[in-house]
Amino acid sequence: TRDHAKGSQDVVESLVARGLVTEEKHRALGVFPVRRYPEADGTVERELRARLAAAVLHGAEPDARTSALIALLHATGMHPQAFPGLPKKQVAPRMAHIAEGHWAGVSVREAIRNLQAAISTVTVVTVLSVVP
């Protein structure tokens, strides 16, 4: 996990260096250091949201990158974040259809299920080891 944290920090530093995100530092409750990395230019997000809307809301055929993103968003249940203000039942069927047609959709769902199973197992084992 230390390697994972280092890798994540490297990615964040690269994004900051390229000017895609900025780093904001402050303290929560005056004590806990908090860092945020908001997007430096909202153009990228607007373009991404437009591609998602075209594919999910307007029936456009998504490219491979958009399909992969939709599969990931659908598998992780991030419907509200992708389409704020719209009910899940309005976007989920189309997202599911796109995800099922994308080769990564099955892999993403499997990986998430495996991760959730692993977390559940660790939780159960931890609880059982604590209980006398």
Rank of each mutant, 00 (worst) to 15 (best):
A40K: 10
S67C: 05
L57E: 15
A96P: 02
M95H: 12
A104D: 11
K89R: 15
M95E: 08
A54Y: 00
T43I: 01
H97I: 05
D63R: 11
V44P: 01
A50D: 13
T66Y: 12
G105D: 01
M95I: 02
H79M: 10
A53G: 06
G59A: 04
P80R: 06
E100V: 02
G101E: 10
E45P: 00
I98N: 09
A75V: 00
A71W: 05
P93A: 11
E61K: 10
K88G: 13
F83Q: 06
H79V: 13
R65I: 00
F83D: 04
R65Y: 07
R65N: 05
R65P: 01
G77T: 09
L57N: 14
G42C: 01
Y37T: 06
V91R: 03
E61D: 10
A71H: 02
P87F: 01
A99I: 02
A54C: 02
Q90S: 15
R51M: 01
G101D: 12
P80I: 04
A40R: 14
L57V: 08
G85I: 08
F83W: 07
G101Y: 11
Q90G: 04
R46W: 13
K88Y: 12
Q90P: 07
V34P: 10
R51P: 00
E39A: 13
A99M: 13
Q81E: 15
A64N: 08
R46V: 05
L86I: 11
L73E: 07
A64I: 04
A54F: 00
V44F: 07
R35V: 06
M95A: 08
R65C: 02
R49H: 06
L73G: 09
T76E: 15
E45G: 01
P62E: 01
A82D: 04
G85T: 11
G85N: 07
Y37L: 03
A53I: 03
A99T: 08
A55C: 07
E45A: 05
E61F: 03
L73H: 05
A64K: 09
R65V: 05
P84I: 02
D63L: 06
T43D: 03
A82Y: 11
V56P: 13
T43E: 09
M95G: 04
P80W: 05
G101R: 08
M95Q: 14
A68M: 14
G101V: 12
A96H: 11
S67N: 12
L57K: 15
D63F: 03
D41A: 05
A99D: 02
Q81C: 00
I98E: 07
V44M: 13
A75D: 06
T66P: 04
E61Q: 14
H97S: 14
